[in-house]
């Protein structure tokens, strides 16, 4: 009787170990923005993110790291090889030891939802704001807005 129980315990442990191993082979992506959640611990193949220390791609078993997103395009390749592109304004990327990845953005949208002409209008609006900015603070704010708008136009084109 006890032998049976032991065997069952062992089998269970083996199954759990196997699970653990496969767990670290997949990359679990949480990609959320303040306006919407795109992926919630979903398994994907690859993620490309733009960061202030340079753009980089993340595959499973990437070395753990932290990064700060800069305005640009996040590209997610799912397990079937389908590529989806999202525009992000700013945010953070966390790659953890267990191959879980958190991409948190302040705001993110699917690239197909962006209107190019609207984006251009925004860009010219902020460019004029930048040239007319009085003090340093307003200038810095306008410069950031221009940077985001530029990335938005580039992403939409």
């Amino acid at each position: 009787m006890s032998f049976v129980r032991n065997a069952r315990l062992l089998a269970m442990r083996g199954a759990r170990l196997g699970q653990n191993r496969s767990y670290s082979d997949d990359m679990k992506l949480t990609f959320a923005a303040a306006n919407k959640t795109f992926f919630d611990a979903a398994v994907v193949r690859q993620i490309d993110v733009p960061s202030f220390s340079g753009s980089f791609g993340i595959l499973a078993k990437h070395v753990p790291t932290l990064a700060v997103l800069k305005p640009g395009v996040v590209q997610v390749t799912d397990n079937d090889g389908k590529v989806t592109k999202y525009f992000v304004s700013s945010g953070s990327v966390t790659v953890n030891e267990d191959s879980s990845v958190q991409v948190l953005a302040e705001e993110a949208h699917n690239i197909e939802d962006i209107d190019v002409s609207e984006a251009r209008q925004l860009l010219s609006k902020y460019q004029s704001e930048l040239s007319s900015a009085g003090n340093d603070k307003a200038k810095a704010e306008a410069a950031i807005a221009v940077e985001v708008a530029e990335a938005l136009v580039k992403a939409a084109e």
Partner: peptide, 21 residues
């Protein structure tokens, strides 16, 4: 220590953003 390529600037911005989140 297991986290790669970190400098205090990145950590600072990261923490600021995570506080807001």
């Amino acid at each position: 220590a297991v986290y790669d390529s970190l400098d205090s600037d990145v950590i600072k911005s990261y923490l600021e953003f995570s506080l807001a989140s």
